[in-house]
Design a protein around this nucleic acid. Structure first.
Lengths: 156, 156
DNA sequence: TGAATAGGGTTGCTTTACGAAACCAAATTA
DNA sequence: TAATTTGGTTTCGTAAAGCAACCCTATTCA
């Protein structure tokens, strides 16, 4: 693929995509959020080839989205757990899932039923809100020129 | 790549990633949200090869994230505009950008300064909230068993 | 009338993502 | 002690993804 790397990109979205923007990484993070921690469990749930899973887990650990902890009682037994950085992807994952549920509902699938552990109430859609909690659309916001992605040198 | 397709996946995140989960698509959507509409502008801002841009735009149009409108005064001149479905990715993009700004800040880059058009106030971080507007972390929520991604047949 | 620009399409080549399967060390079971 | 399971890593072949470069048409500008 000779893919363009975004590591040095001037845009944080590009850099974020560099870490979790491939086909598997975000799904791994998703399953980690659902509680999956072990290699074999990821493999079975995702139906991913072992080497790819290996690669992705290593990369996520490198990027500090996951941490690899040795929980071996006797020898080595590893678990992959979300770091704070990884857990911070929660709004992204939920927003993406809600978007998918809304625009590409599977006929035979129950849409995400995420609930508040404290109250049992379903979680409303993730929104961009202003300081007062009022939901905003793309059109309700603006970006000062200096903060635009393609601003001056180095686009992407 | 012989990539596994997720079209028929039981998981809406997987299906969403199938539409905007590649390296370029979400960046294209991002730039579209910033106002970019024309082929050449996307190309210059993103530094993407023309055939790839061609392919991605077509795919986004196919998936109804963008619409291709002929704005030619005399001949053909096209613009790619966000559809409602595309605009609905706003929370995803903003959340991702905020995540990137928080965890991978570029030394020389201004973090996203998104502001409410009405008030001029900066936009606070996108959160998952409960019905009362209280922010929730991964640990504050649960998913009824039937709604889990790896539930029964068909994982991913 | 010529040159430049917009909006692509096509070809060729390289790099990578991917899955299958073999391999391997440590621990458990028989 | 031998066989099996767990938890991966390595190797390999293939199918894409990616970029560069060239081509092509229609329009606009000089």
């Amino acid at each position: 693929m000779a893919r363009k790397r975004f590591d040095d990109s001037n845009c944080s979205v590009a850099r974020a995509l560099n870490e979790v923007g491939d086909w598997w990484s975000l799904l791994i993070v998703l399953h980690a959020m659902y509680g999956t921690r072990r290699f074999v469990d990821f493999q079975q749930e995702l139906g991913i080839a072992k080497n790819i899973l290996c690669d992705r887990l290593a990369r996520l650990v490198d990027n500090q989205v996951l941490s690899k902890v040795d929980v071996g009682e006797h020898g080595s037994r590893f678990e992959y757990r979300l770091t704070e950085k990884g857990r911070d992807l929660f709004p992204v994952v939920v927003a993406l899932r809600q978007w998918g549920d809304k625009w590409n509902p599977a006929p035979d699938e129950v849409p995400l039923d995420l609930r508040d552990r404290a109250t049992g109430q379903p979680i409303p859609p993730v929104e961009v809100q202003n300081a007062d909690g009022k939901p905003l659309s793309v059109r309700d916001v603006f970006v000062p020129e200096a903060s635009r992605p393609g601003h001056k040198k180095n686009s992407a």
